[in-house]
Amino acid sequence: MERTEKFIEELKRNDVEVYLTSRSSLNEDLNEFFKKQGIKRVFVRPRGLVNQLSPDIEFTEKFDEDVDAGLSEADFGIAYSGGLVELAESPSDKLPSLLPDIHIALLKESNILDDFDVLFENIPHPLPDITFIVGPSKTADIEKILVKGAHGPRRVIVFIVR
């Protein structure tokens, strides 16, 4: 699909690592990813696709020093910016994509939107808190030299689920 291609192109431009998968192979692909990356403990937002997984490793809803990565399902993707959209009902919903060094986001392909406009036209009211995430956190405050991993994640990985 053209929209998905544009989205992936923008994600890559934003230094996001992209994997394409399907409903049936998501679980297996994720477990393999955890194994390959040495990820043993994952801080999750237990909602949507995340709840349907059967991981080989430990999932936790509490953040601590031993967490290797954060996992959440993004509510939408924006092809225009290669951005992930997270809707949060409470501040704690925002933490898995924020606190760990690695953030893994799951995204249903059907939730990829062309542009921001579509999002704001379709979002339910009263509004939840909305966060757009465009790649790993970064700074260029020292001599304009780009450093990835400022206060948030150093790596962002997206699994697009067809």
Binding site: R13, S81, G83, A88, E89, S90, D115, F116, D117, F120, P126, L127, P128, D129, I130, T131, F132, I133, V134, G135, P136, S137, K138, A140, G152
Partner: peptide, 26 residues
């Protein structure tokens, strides 16, 4: 908001978008 988000970062740091946009409503 989309219009402003599309002009702010390019005019400022030259980025296409900032890494995070936080919209608070709660």
């Amino acid at each position: 908001l989309p219009v402003f988000l599309k002009i702010l970062a390019p005019s400022s740091t030259g980025q296409h978008q900032t890494v995070y946009t936080n919209i608070f409503s709660q």
